[in-house]
C-alpha cells in the first residue's frame, strides 16, 4: 500500500464541481494553503471545480488560502462558526451581495457534526444553541430534565488537511494547535488528502503517537516548507500573485 501522491496538482485533480470540501485549520493554524492554492490553479486552468460547499471554522483572511478560493468565485456555500478575521473583506463583500450562502454553526457543534459524520452517527443531541436563533427549526428533546437540540452529521466528498508528518500508509501526526479540525475532517470525508511537511517511513511514527490512523486517509502529498497564512497575510500576499 502506498498512499503518497507525487504532486499537489494530482492531489486535487479529482475534486468535482459542486463537491462538499472540508478544509482543515483554525484561522491560519493548520490551513492547508498549498492544497487550496493547487485547487485554485486547477480552476484557473480548467474552470473547474466550482460551486463548492466548503466546511471550515472560518471564512478566510486576506487574499490567500480559503479567502482566495472564495475570491475566485469557486465557493457557493460556506459552513463555518466564525466568519470574521483580521481581514474578512473577501467573504463579507460576497456575503452581503448574496453571492455566497452561509450556514453558521456553533464551533463545538461543527466539530461534533464532523466527528459524527466520520463515526457513522447520523444525529445527536447537544445543549448548545437551545433557545437561540441557531436552533430554530431543529427538533428538541428532554433528557433527565434538560432540553437538547438535535444536530445532524456532516460529511464531505473531500477533505483537504495539513499535518506535520505522515507515512505511505496515511498515519499522521500534527503540529501543536494546527491539529484542530484535522483528525475529524480526515474521518468525515469520502476522500481525504493530506499535505505533510515530511513523508516518513512506516514505523518512524511511534504507534503510540499516531494521531490519525491511515484508514482515514486516502492520499498524502509532501509539502516540505508549508506557508503560514498569518505570515503571508502580514506580508500582504495575494493568490494568485499579482504581477508588480
Amino acid at each position: 500500500m502506498d498512499k503518497t501522491i507525487e504532486s499537489l496538482s494530482e492531489a486535487v485533480a479529482a475534486i468535482a464541481d459542486g463537491a462538499t470540501v472540508m478544509i482543515g485549520g483554525f484561522g491560519g493554524s493548520g490551513a492547508p494553503i498549498e492544497l487550496v492554492h493547487a485547487l485554485i490553479d486547477r480552476f484557473l486552468a480548467t474552470g473547474s471545480p466550482t460551486g463548492l460547499t466548503v466546511v471550515n471554522n472560518n471564512a478566510g483572511n486576506g487574499h490567500v488560502g480559503l479567502a482566495a478560493l472564495i475570491e475566485q468565485g469557486m465557493v457557493a456555500k460556506l459552513v463555518c462558526s466564525f466568519p470574521r478575521s483580521a481581514d474578512p473583506r473577501v467573504f463579507t463583500e460576497r456575503y452581503q451581495r448574496g453571492e455566497i450562502e452561509l450556514e453558521l454553526v456553533p464551533q463545538g457543534t461543527l466539530a461534533e457534526r464532523i466527528r459524527a459524520g466520520g463515526a457513522g452517527i447520523p444525529a445527536f443531541y447537544t445543549p448548545t444553541a437551545y433557545g437561540t436563533d441557531l436552533a430554530v427549526g431543529k427538533p428538541t428533546a428532554e433528557f433527565d430534565g434538560r432540553t437538547y437540540v438535535q444536530e445532524r452529521w456532516l460529511k464531505a466528498d473531500v477533505a483537504l488537511v495539513k499535518a506535520e508528518a505522515g507515512d505511505r500508509l496515511g498515519n499522521l501526526v500534527f503540529r501543536k494547535a494546527a491539529r484542530n479540525f484535522g483528525p475529524l475532517m480526515c474521518m468525515a470525508a469520502a476522500r481525504t488528502i493530506v499535505q505533510v511537511s515530511r513523508i516518513v517511513e512506516p514505523g518512524a511514527i511511534d504507534p503510540e503517537h499516531v494521531v490519525t490512523p491511515g484508514i482515514f486517509v486516502a492520499g498524502v502529498v509532501e509539502v516540505p516548507d508549508p506557508a503560514q497564512e498569518e505570515l503571508l497575510n502580514r506580508a500582504g500576499a495575494r493568490y494568485p500573485e499579482v504581477a508588480a
Binding site: 466568519p83 463579507t92 453558521l104 456553533p106 457543534t109
Partner: peptide
C-alpha cells in the same frame, strides 16, 4: 456578518 465561534457551547 453573524459569527458565533464557541460561545454557545461554552455557556452550556
Amino acid at each position: 456578518v453573524p459569527a458565533v465561534g464557541g460561545a454557545m457551547d461554552l455557556v452550556h
